[in-house]
Each structure stands twice: as C-alpha cells, then as structure tokens.
C-alpha cells in the first residue's frame, strides 16, 4: 500500500516574529514495516538554512532558521510512504511470558536489547504510579504470554477510556487521565506506556498518521486526517510490535509511523524558538491519501 501524506502546521502570531529557529520531526522513518519513498519539508516564509540529521532514536530531524520577519509561519511536509503487510497472526504463536522479557531487559546481551532496555524507564509523561501499575497487573497475570497480555491491556484501555477531545491538554498529568478515564490518543499511548514500564517492560511511543475513510457515499474532506499516536512493545527475537489503544487494533496498512521515542517530548513534530511573536495560534491539517500503484 502506498500513501501520500500532506501535513501542514500554521502558526499565526499576534506580533511580528523577527527570527525563528526550529526542529521538525516530520519525515516518516523507514523500517521493516514501511519505506519512506520521498519527503519534503517546505516553509513559508522560506528558510535561509535547512539541514537534517538522524537523532538517537533513528528519527530524521529537519533543522531550519527563518530570519525573515513574519506573522504567519506555515510548515508543510509532503511524504510518500509504502507500507508493507505485517504477519500479525503468527505473533500470537510465540508464548513468551512477560516475566521472562522483564528479566532479559535487566541484562541486555545485544545492541537491540540494550536499546530496548531504556524504554523500561519512566519518563516525564509516563511517571511511575502504583495505581497504574495495579491496572496493568490485571492484564499481566503471572506466566501470561506477553503478546496476549498486551492485547488485553490495549482492549481494556479502549473499553474503559472514553475518547474526548478537549478534555485534556499536553500538560494534564497521567493520574488525572486515569482518574477520569478520558482523553485523546496521546493520553492513551502515554497511559499504556506507563502501565508497561511500571512492570519493567520496554515500550515506546509512536507518532504517525492514520487513514480515515469518509462515511459511505461522501467525499473525503481536505485536511480531515489527523496526526495519531500509539505504542509499541519490545519482545526479544520479535522486535517492536505496535498496538493502537485508541482503535483497539494492531496497526497494519493504515498506520504510518512518523517517529518513535520515549514519549511525546522525544517526537514533538515541530518545535521552535521565536524572537518576538506575542501570543500565537496553531492550526494543523493532515491529508493522507492512497496512491495507485
């Protein structure tokens, strides 16, 4: 499956900005499940400096400066991505207990396990919380296979939590999300991470896009798609396996991975420092469309 994604971010400032310096994580990564065929980051006003590098987690970062005075900044990323089919049914054949994964992560023996080990640690958005750990234990019963337990956790989050846009902000603490059982995909991903890490498992945050289909008989609206977030869990020999608690599915050919990290702070799509600007407003629009072969 091939997709073309257009992701536009518009900042509107109340006062002119004389200079802004930015870092964008708007280039889909290439891995065993997808290939980024092309990617372009375009800004208005134009950047006088643009460079890219690959960060610690393997994400491609675009660095740019805009020294032209402006009141609006538009950053558009256009990408073509090919998604490969995943053999997910066979995942459930592996009867690896979650406790054995916890033990293996304590003493990593290879590079991959070493990289995974740090995803067991709490982070700013996924602090240790005994109540959250208790919630996790209900899925992670002794001796249970890790894939089944994680799928169960995902399903419980999907059923127990209500999707409600606007109830939380990025600074809402996880304990509050848990108390009210409401939030958006970002909250659900962070919550799942906190659950898994509290057990000593390695789990990472995944940011990306999900394809939405219009109701039957209607035309898809421009900008109707959205940025999305889910999580992945590390299983020795199998690698990273994605789970989407917002939709209760194992991502397959409708999810595009943009970036991975410990939590949202590592994968912020666009961050910047501005000189001037006053207050600002933000508008994000995503279009994700299938491409013919």
């Amino acid at each position: 499956m091939k997709y073309k994604v257009k992701h536009s971010t518009t900042y509107s400032y109340s006062e002119p900005v004389s200079l802004c310096q930015n870092q964008a994580r708007l280039s889909p990564i290439s891995n065993e499940f997808q290939r980024c065929i092309s990617n372009q980051v375009i800004t208005t006003p134009a950047a006088d400096y643009l460079d890219t590098f690959v960060d610690y987690f393997g994400n491609k970062v675009t660095v740019f400066d805009i020294p032209t005075q402006h009141e609006n900044l538009i950053v558009t990323a256009i990408s073509e991505v090919e998604i490969f089919n995943r053999q997910q049914a066979s995942l459930f054949d592996a009867q690896i207990t979650w406790e054995s994964v916890v033990a293996a992560l304590q003493f990593p023996v290879n590079e991959l396990a070493l990289q995974a080990a740090e995803f067991t640690l709490p982070s700013v958005f996924t602090p240790i919380d005994p109540q959250i750990r208790q919630y996790a234990f209900e899925s992670f019963t002794p001796g249970r296979a890790i894939i089944q337990a994680t799928e169960d956790l995902m399903a419980r989050i999907f059923n127990d939590f209500q999707y409600e846009s606007g109830f939380t902000t990025i600074s809402t603490p996880l304990s509050e999300v848990f108390a009210h059982k409401k939030g958006v995909c970002q909250d659900f991903a962070h919550f799942a991470l906190a659950c898994l890490r509290s057990l000593g498992l390695a789990a990472r945050y995944v940011s990306g896009y999900i394809e939405t289909l219009p109701p039957e008989g209607q035309v898809k609206l421009e900008g109707a798609d959205a940025t999305h977030a889910w999580f992945a869990i590390y299983v020795p020999d199998l690698g990273w396996i994605d789970f989407d608690p917002t939709n209760n599915v194992l991502p397959n050919d409708q999810h595009i991975t943009l970036a991975v990290g410990r939590d949202f702070a590592d994968v912020t799509p666009l961050k910047g420092i501005v000189f001037g600007g006053g207050t600002h407003q933000l508008l994000v629009a995503v279009d994700m469309n299938r491409q013919g072969d």
Binding site: Y11, I170, S171, V184, A189, F264, A265, G272, I273, L282
Partner: peptide, 19 residues
C-alpha cells in the same frame, strides 16, 4: 539582546497534539 521565547517552553495550551 532581547530574549527568545520557546514555542514549547510551557508544554501546554497550543502545542500541536496528536489525537
């Protein structure tokens, strides 16, 4: 010499969010 402002200094309010 005037100070810079971070668009993500207070991770909050109008940060782009993933939904």
């Amino acid at each position: 010499t005037k100070a810079a402002v971070s668009l993500n200094a207070n991770l909050g309010s109008i940060e782009p969010r993933e939904v």
